[in-house]
Design a protein around this nucleic acid. Structure first.
Length: 425
RNA sequence: GGCCCCAUCGUCUAGUGGCCUAGGACAUUAGCUUCUCAGGCUAAAGGCCGGGGUUCGACUCCCCGUGGGGCUACCA
């Protein structure tokens, strides 16, 4: 039975790099009909915490990376590690140093055949004796990892390439126990544009932050997959189910990949655009509520109309509050200096004319609104832009936005008329 | 310092000795579309780190150099 695992440590939020490791494990397992195990490496009691653990599991679910087995917690398995360490002690493969149990390293050459990097050789002469159990009774990472991987029947270890140099240490433990050594596949790390690993210094690194900004999980997954991996045939937009069928370790690069927010944004926009309006509207509710633009009771079908207007223009969902606020604000709004200047340019009589005409419209449709506007333009012999720009500013306090006439229609007769009546400069 | 790994447009990548005059995507620039912005469409610019080999032929194989990264904890 093919079995892989994802083993996050709850000493921080789920990092994009970890999420990608989880993704590749998930894809590999599902592609081969294997099992995906989740193990929480919380053996360091001081630095681990429960809230973080819950958050990590939630993020994995949000990404759609459901595990088949677990979660196991290392903190609940301390006796097991101790038992195995004592076995090595009894066999004189380890020795005591104070309270700690130390593994004796013997000189040898260790070859690993990495599924991604190929053959790598290490000389254990450069490796010190390894701590198995610390003086405080907790196991070290490398030791607990090997015991667990053995106990859980892990056949393939897919993890970040920062673990390459841990591999020979772990192999020595497998040898000491006489256990079968699993296959290793190390994936390149995600790097920062300025060099170095992806860090908080330059932007969000936690999956949760992207969720909070309104990135769609399918977009984030798609982007993460494209880092170091590419399906055949110049494809960019690839769904999780498509990845499942196309995934293979042999198509993973050895090269580190630099994180690029622009491409993530582009992908997210694509996914938002392709999503059903109803779905995006539903997701936008929490952002609009957080920014106090809508309350607990709101008109969902109206919200859907608003979302339709903006669906293709959002890089991420939380932008909705900023660019669509005027749909939810009261009729009277505060104008920027720039808006005031533009509004002033239009003759007072035209404002009055617009209000009158709109009030007379039975059907406040995009077409009717445009017709009315075009008639005024023709009668006065002015250019379209001369009325359209001031009108946009008067209604939205913005210079940019969706098509003006459909925007007005969605805004609704009542609010549009009232807002024009409320103009104060 | 020691050990290990890596190297194609700015970025993600395709490429597994002739299909390469190196393809695609993001970003950039220009034109068109339009009430604005975004979008869409069209086009442009942009790369095989350097040097030696091997070969009839190297982006592709080998060596050296250079650059980048990782590890070197009683952290994970």
């Amino acid at each position: 039975m093919l079995k892989v695992r994802f083993a996050p440590s709850p000493t921080g939020s789920l990092h994009l790099g970890s999420a990608r490791a989880a993704l590749f494990n998930f894809l590999f397992a599902k592609n081969k009909g294997g099992k995906f195990v989740l193990r929480v490496e919380d053996s360091d009691r001081q630095r681990s915490n429960k809230e973080l653990t819950a958050e990590i599991l939630e993020d994995l679910c949000w990404l759609g990376l459901q595990w088949d087995e677990g979660p196991y917690f290392q903190s609940e398995r301390i006796d097991l590690y101790k038992k195995y360490a004592e076995n090595l002690l009894n066999e004189k493969k380890a020795y005591l140093e104070g309270e700690a149990i130390i593994f004796k390293v013997h000189p040898q050459k260790i070859k690993i055949n990495d599924l991604i990097y190929g053959e790598i050789e290490f000389d254990t002469n450069v490796i010190k004796d390894q701590v198995l159990m610390k003086s405080d009774g907790s196991p070290t990472y490398n030791f607990a990892c090997v015991v667990d991987d053995y106990e859980m029947g892990i056949t393939h270890i897919i993890r970040g390439d920062d673990h390459i140099s841990n591999t020979p240490k772990q192999i020595m433990f497998y040898q000491a126990f006489g256990w079968q050594i699993p296959k290793f596949a190390h994936i390149p790390l995600i790097m920062e544009a300025g060099g170095g690993r992806l860090s908080k210094r330059y932007g969000a690194t936690a999956v949760g932050e992207y969720r909070q900004r309104g990135y769609l999980p399918e977009a984030l997954i798609n982007y993460l997959a494209l880092l170091s991996w590419a399906p055949a045939g110049n494809r960019e937009i690839v769904s999780l189910s498509e990845m499942l069928s196309k995934f293979s370790l042999s198509r993973i690069n050895k090269t580190k990949a630099i994180f690029n927010i622009d491409k993530l944004n582009w992908l997210n926009t694509q996914y938002i655009k392709e999503s059903k309006t109803e779905k995006i509207a539903r997701l936008c509710v929490s952002f609009l509520q957080k920014d106090e633009l809508i309350s607990d009771s709101y008109d969902f079908s109206h919200l859907e109309k608003v979302i339709d207007l903006f669906k293709g223009r959002l890089k991420y969902l939380s932008q909705i509050s900023e660019i669509a606020a005027y749909f939810f604000l009261p009729a009277k709004i505060e104008y920027s200096e720039e808006a005031k200047q533009k509004i002033k340019k239009l003759d007072k009589r035209i404002w009055d004319e617009l209000i009158k005409q709109w009030e007379n419209l039975d059907d406040f449709s995009t077409e009717n609104i445009e017709r009315v506007c075009r008639e005024i333009i023709a009668e006065r012999g002015i250019k379209g832009a001369e009325i359209i720009h001031p009108l946009r500013e008067a209604l939205t306090n913005m210079a940019v936005g969706p098509g003006l006439f459909e925007l007005i229609s969605v805004l609704g007769k009542e609010k549009a008329v009232e807002r024009l009546k409320c103009i104060t400069l």
